[in-house]
Every structure is written in C-alpha cells, then in structure tokens.
C-alpha cells in the first residue's frame, strides 16, 4: 500500500518539476541583452577582448537562439535530464561538476539544521503545551519570538562575534569536508547550523504547541486517561502521534523556508554550499551556474516535501486507502 502510494506521489511531482523547469529556462530569456553574451558571462567592455569568435559561435549553436523558443526549451531540458547543465564560463568546467562538488556541504547543513531544529522544537513545543503558563512555556515562547523578530543574519553576526571573535572557540567562516577532518567539519558547521535551526525550530514550536493544545481536548485523550494510562503514555503515545501528523505537513513548508534562509547564512559564513554558489554566480553573471543551482535547490525542496508526504502517509492510517 505504502509503496504504491509513494510511487503515485512521486509521479505527482512531475507537473511541479515541469513548471519549475519552464521557469528556470525562462529566467535567462528575461535577462536583457544578447543571450549568447549573457550565457558567456560577458559583463561589458569590448567583446573581442574577452570572447573569441569561435567561443561565441559555439554558444550560439548550443543555445540555438534562432530556433523557436519551445524547441530551445526541449533541447535544454533534454540536455539537463542527461546531466548536461552547460559549462561555467567563469570556471571553465561543467556546471554539474561545480554543483556536485558543493552539494554535500549544503545537504549536511540542511540536515544538521533540520535535526537540531527538530530536537529543540519537539520537546519544547510539547512541554509548552502540556505545561501551559509555566517557565517551559515562557521559554518556548521566548524562542518563538526570538526566531520571529530577529533576522537570521543578525543572529549569525552575534554568534560570530561571541563564539568566533570574543571567545574564539569556533571558526566563523569556511568549511572542511567530514571525510577530511570530522572534528573540523563539526566546528565549521556549528554556527550556521545553530542559526538555521533556531529559525526552523521557532516555527515548528509554535505549530506543535498550538496543535498539541487542541489535541489534548480531543475525546480520544479522555479515553486514554479512562484506561488508566500514565500521563507519559497519554502524551507521548496517544497525543504525540496525532500531533505529528499535523506537524509533518508543515515541515515541508518550513524546510523550503530553511533552504531560502540558507542563501544568506551560507554567504555570511562563507560556507561553500550551493546557496553561496548561487549568490556568487549571480554577482559574477555566471548564468549557466545560476540556472543549474536553481534547478538543484528546487529539486531539493520538491524532494523534501515529497519525503514529508510519505512520512505523513506512514503516520496516517487513513491516507493509504483514500
């Protein structure tokens, strides 16, 4: 049942992916100027100085600028599906290679933030709901408000000042791959993870608290108590599973938000993930890379939402039969 559902949901992401591909393709069409030059990273000055006739001609052929746009799109999509995202004029290597080199850093950061955020959010959100108007509730409320009113970059700067500059405990920029030096990897990933996790957690806490309070009023909770179950079972077995059902559906959203937030945070910490790459590429007018990165980020968001859907189905006995 679940496998069939997973496949069906996977197929249902195809229209989304199609729309994303159209948008990404069109982005470059919207940039004013000669598209061949744009894709070659030309940024003013005398063309002949920077770009040879041969390079220009090769790009003209690759883009097929004189063909009808739909045909250009189909050709572009065909190449993209085969993993050919073009070549970065800046780095002179395939965009795919650049992205794949940077992708792990972003995935590690996203996963670490989601895990840390969840580890903070679930106990705090549940405790806040169960012990309303106690110090835990106030603490949770504090985290939520902090996450809402303080922009991520400000938190990042404060953390950099405190742990990096003042205390000198942690590096404030850069990255080390885990396979090279795991401890250094952890040290580098800590600060950006905290910033993203706090933002993620503050949203999730708010949601869990509200939902949990609602769930506690449900009849099935009274039944669980009437059975003589301990409060621990009532909360962490009976209410928790129902509440997670609702929470998982918002996790998809929050993860998308997290990916957006990571652009700023990766840049601030000079953390070489694909979000930072995106920003760098925009500044460098490296549109081939921009296109490639946007596709990847979109893919990741779609995939995360897909995972949230599957998790929801796993928790919800009803959905598999609908």
């Amino acid at each position: 049942m679940l496998i069939r559902y997973s496949i069906r949901r996977l197929l249902e992401t195809i229209p989304t992916l199609f729309i994303i591909s159209v948008i990404v393709f069109s982005l470059v069409l919207l940039i004013p100027g000669d598209r061949v030059l744009v894709m070659l990273g030309y940024s003013g000055g005398d063309i002949a100085d920077v770009i040879s006739k041969e390079v220009y001609a090769a790009m003209e052929i690759r883009l097929g600028v004189n063909d009808p746009i739909p045909l250009q799109y189909v050709r572009w999509l065909g190449r993209a599906l085969q993993g050919d995202l073009g070549t970065s004029p800046l780095h002179a290597i395939p965009v795919m290679d650049i992205i794949l080199a940077r992708l792990p850093a972003t995935i590690y950061l996203a996963l670490a933030s989601i895990i840390l955020g969840t580890l903070i959010a679930i106990p705090l959100g549940v405790a806040a709901a169960v012990k309303q108007n106690t110090w835990v509730d106030h603490l949770a409320n504090g985290v939520v408000l902090f996450g809402l009113v303080t922009p991520g970059f400000w938190v990042a700067l404060m953390l950099v000042l405190l742990f990096g500059v003042y205390l000198g405990w942690l590096p404030t920029f850069g990255y080390t791959a885990p396979q090279d030096d795991f401890v250094e990897f952890l040290r580098h990933i800590t600060l950006p993870t905290i910033v993203l996790a706090l933002d993620f957690a503050s949203n999730v806490i708010r949601f869990i608290r509200t939902d949990f309070i609602e769930q506690m009023r449900e009849d099935y909770v009274r039944t669980a108590r009437a059975k003589g179950l301990s409060e621990r079972l009532v909360i962490w077995k009976h209410i928790f599973k129902n509440s997670m059902l609702a929470t998982v559906t918002v996790l998809g959203f929050d993860i998308s938000r997290l990916m957006g937030g990571s652009t700023v945070i990766e840049s601030l910490f000079a953390y070489p993930g694909i979000s930072f790459l995106l920003l760098q590429s925009i500044f460098n007018r490296d549109f081939a890379t921009v296109q490639g990165v946007v596709i990847f980020i979109a893919l990741m968001v779609v995939f995360m939402n897909y995972l949230a859907d599957i998790l929801y189905a796993l928790l919800n006995p009803r959905i598999r039969y609908e």
Binding site: E218, D219, Y220, R222, T223, A224, R225, A226, K227, G228, L229, S230, H238, K241, N242, L245, L315, N316, P317, R318
Partner: peptide, 26 residues
C-alpha cells in the same frame, strides 16, 4: 492510585463513538 483503578476496576464508555477512539492506532 486512580490510574491503577481506571480501566481495571472502574471503566467508562462515552457518548461519542466516532471520536472516542484514537484515530492513529489500530
């Protein structure tokens, strides 16, 4: 003490069969 009594020595059934069971468990 009440927890050892509820469900074991005194039980209760409620008016609303549609909502009294936990939808997430068999």
């Amino acid at each position: 003490e009440m927890r050892t009594i509820r469900g074991q020595r005194i039980s209760m059934i409620f008016q609303e069969p549609m909502t009294s069971l936990n939808p997430a468990y068999t």
